[in-house]
Design a protein around this nucleic acid. Structure first.
Lengths: 208, 208
DNA sequence: ACCTGAACACCGTTCAAGT
DNA sequence: ACCTGAACACCGTTCAAGT
């Protein structure tokens, strides 16, 4: 019956999904697993490492972008995105845009997902594969290695910042503490506006 | 001799500057002031409110952008910025760029400044004047109200994300925990690359 | 190898009671 | 009005000792 690292990770993810980052403590985790807090430290180095793993799992749901230069259908468009050119086509700008949307859906699918990934990425940057893919796509889009790296970081900041804002407001709304008149229906549009601005600024053409 | 709210804020800022956000606790603050923890709560609602005030003070160091459309000299260029068109001229894009640089210097001047402002802004968005100025400048640059608001948020995410990354690495370096070979000299260039990309993407012309 | 028990050194916040 | 004393309900982490 011995406690597994896998069980710890799963229980942690469960707390995150159901109660959010504020409720994810090592002691709470141990309680849920019916074990003493110290027991966790035989399987896990510390809380930071655990959060890093959770961040990786959250982003593992991001699909790899389609290969060379296809024109196939992209999956998982997270509801209605609004803008006309939503379908995206082949490579260059479309795939980066689609990847940004996919990262966003992955983050949104877990409570406080953006905060978890931000924490993990602050400690161990350039480690998360999804962000690395962002960089690779920019490079394939014609940017130099340096510009692609900087561009990927800029996009990452926009994505994480935007989704974190979105989720924080969702948390506040759930807690019933909203200043008043907080409509906030056009998060999708706001997100795409930011991403598209960065992409345009990086010189990624809309339609080659 | 009664404890003042002012003293609390100053002591808090002092801890922040000298030891960073991780060391800024209500209990530590009380100890430094030679008072019981509970005493703080007569002058301050809670820790969150205090952090919000600190965030405001950090950004209060950001100079207001020059008036109508001058061509005067801008102050406080935070060391060498690298890129050729550093001087900036008049209004439109230059002033936004300069404001972004000024916000960055203000954040960098306090340990973990970006994290403090991020926390504060997450709870009470659209409250910090410097970020509002960003939006006003974009609107004056020809963007619609909606696009200016979204553009300001995008810029804010880039600035806060970029500086937070920078400061986290500084903290890790100070703690002596760096993976190895962490050069990281070109933070200025990386920052400007991101900001310029967003500005270009927003349609702000380089030289009218 | 894997876990308990117990400790160490902390948190934020509240609130009766004192002055 | 302003603060103390003391509590409440927590943290992350370590580590001897048990099995």
């Amino acid at each position: 019956m011995a406690l597994t690292r896998r069980q710890i990770e799963d229980a942690a993810m469960e707390i995150l999904r159901s109660y959010g980052l504020a409720d994810l403590s090592m002691r709470r985790l141990a309680r849920d697993l019916g074990v003493q807090p110290g027991a966790l430290y035989w399987h896990v180095k510390n809380k930071q490492e655990l959060l890093g793993v959770l961040a990786g799992q959250i982003l593992a749901a991001v699909p790899e972008p389609d290969g060379g230069r296809p024109d196939g259908l992209e999956d998982q468009a997270s509801g209605a995105v609004g803008t006309p050119e939503a379908g995206s086509s082949g490579d260059g700008r479309g795939s980066v845009r689609q990847l940004a949307l996919d990262i966003r859906s992955a983050l949104l699918s877990v409570r406080d997902g953006a905060d978890v990934v931000s924490l993990a990425q602050a400690m161990t940057p350039e480690t998360l594969p999804a962000i690395n893919t962002l960089r690779r796509l920019l490079e394939r889009g014609g940017l130099s290695a340096q510009h692609a790296a900087w561009g990927a970081r800029t996009l990452t900041h926009c994505i994480l910042g935007s989704v974190a804002e979105e989720q924080t407001h969702a948390d506040l709304a759930a807690a019933g503490l909203l200043p008043e008149g907080a409509e906030r229906n056009n998060d999708d549009e706001a997100f795409l506006f930011g991403v598209d601005a960065v992409l345009a600024g990086l010189g990624l053409a809309g339609r080659p």
